[in-house]
């Protein structure tokens, strides 16, 4: 007996076509609704930036463009989290520049916020040495800005809200738990394992070394992409201000070469910021494992869901050299060429 929907030759009956057509239309409608419900976010990009110029105006413009209301930060605790993973005076393009950190602190203090700069360097146990080598310690002292050593503060356990890894919860330092807003302030860099490190990967540096080790090997053993997403999902409200002025390409995040871009990026959604960063670097964000995991959970990765403010990413795009490793070359948005080192 012939199936009412399927012909014996494997063709599709008219009734089936109609049913399928209805289903396709229904699915299309659902996709449309789902797409409309997906998070949209704004990312602000400024070009022509310099460390010896006034960066506060750029950062203010970026925060405003991304919808931040300064009045809501009055009296709130803001934690600025730069990247001081393994500072060396010989490689200043490895770490967030002090001028960007101080400018951001000035902006948030100007909004009436209580500002702390905090970092748990991932590779060095001597945090004071990290502050010296990066120049950040001196800049903070000169600016009267408080520093929190997140590697050694008391910790509090919080449930893992990301649930991408098998970690039940995360230990967070006091300054992170108490913050109303955590501002990830990465250096724009390539990363020799995951391709790109920006505002999400930078948040590895809020977890305390005294619990997770140097490096934070507990996270590696639970999956780098998974734990990157878990941390971002578990923190209080977050934003990103990216130091994309002197960047790192090639063997990042430590040993790569300097690449001058002159950019500052600001955004209130870390996945959207990092996707934009990746596009600027010539990397397809959906191929970056932690961005693929974050997409539509932590924020938008699709270009169509990200509103560009300031410069369009295409106008500042300048592909970064990646190491000649298969796991990195497959991330490139445009195959071919000699974009490896």
């Amino acid at each position: 007996m012939e199936d009412s929907h399927m012909r014996s030759d494997g063709g599709v009956t008219r009734r089936s076509m109609l049913l399928a057509g209805g289903a396709v239309a229904g699915i299309a409608g659902l996709v449309g609704i789902k797409r409309a419900l997906r998070p949209h976010a704004s990312v602000f990009t400024a070009r022509g930036q310099r460390y010896d110029a006034d960066l506060t105006k750029t950062i203010q413009d970026g925060l405003t463009a991304c919808g931040l209301n300064p009045a809501e930060l009055r009296g709130k605790r803001v934690l600025l989290k730069p990247n001081l993973v393994e500072p060396s005076k010989a490689i200043p393009h490895m770490t967030t520049h002090p001028a960007v950190i101080v400018a951001a602190a000035d902006v948030f203090r100007g909004y009436g916020a209580d500002v702390t700069v905090g970092e748990a360097p991932g590779h060095v146990r001597d945090t004071l040495m990290a502050l010296d080598e990066s120049g950040v310690g001196e800049a903070l002292r000169d600016g009267g800005i408080r520093f929190a050593d997140l590697n050694y503060e008391e910790v509090a356990w919080r449930p893992n809200l990301g649930r991408r890894s098998k970690l039940e919860g995360l230990y967070l330092p006091r300054s992170v738990v108490e913050a109303d807003l955590v501002v990830s302030m990465p250096k724009l860099k390539t990363h020799h394992w995951v391709g790109v490190t920006a505002s999400m990967k930078n948040l590895y540096g809020v977890l305390p070394g005294i619990k997770y080790g140097w490096p934070k090997n507990v996270l590696h053993h639970n999956g780098i992409p998974e734990t990157v997403v878990d941390i971002a999902a578990t923190l209080p409200r977050t934003m990103a201000i990216v130091d994309g002025i002197d960047c790192m390409e090639g063997d990042g995040p430590i040993m790569g070469s300097c690449k001058h871009m002159g950019l500052i990026l600001v955004g209130s959604n870390l996945a959207a910021v990092d996707s934009t960063v990746a596009r600027i670097m010539g990397i397809e964000p959906s191929r970056v494992c932690y961005l693929a995991l974050a997409a539509n959970r932590l924020g938008p990765v699709d270009e169509g869901l990200i509103e560009e403010r300031g410069e369009a990413w295409r106008s500042v795009k300048s592909p970064f050299h990646l190491l000649d490793q298969e796991h990195l070359q497959r991330l490139r948005a445009d195959r071919g060429g000699s974009l490896f080192s």
Partner: peptide
């Protein structure tokens, strides 16, 4: 000594005082 790695993807890492 670095914090623990020596060479990664063919690149020797940085020495530090403490380790």
């Amino acid at each position: 000594a670095n914090y623990g790695n020596t060479i990664v993807l063919g690149q020797p890492l940085l020495p530090h005082m403490q380790p």
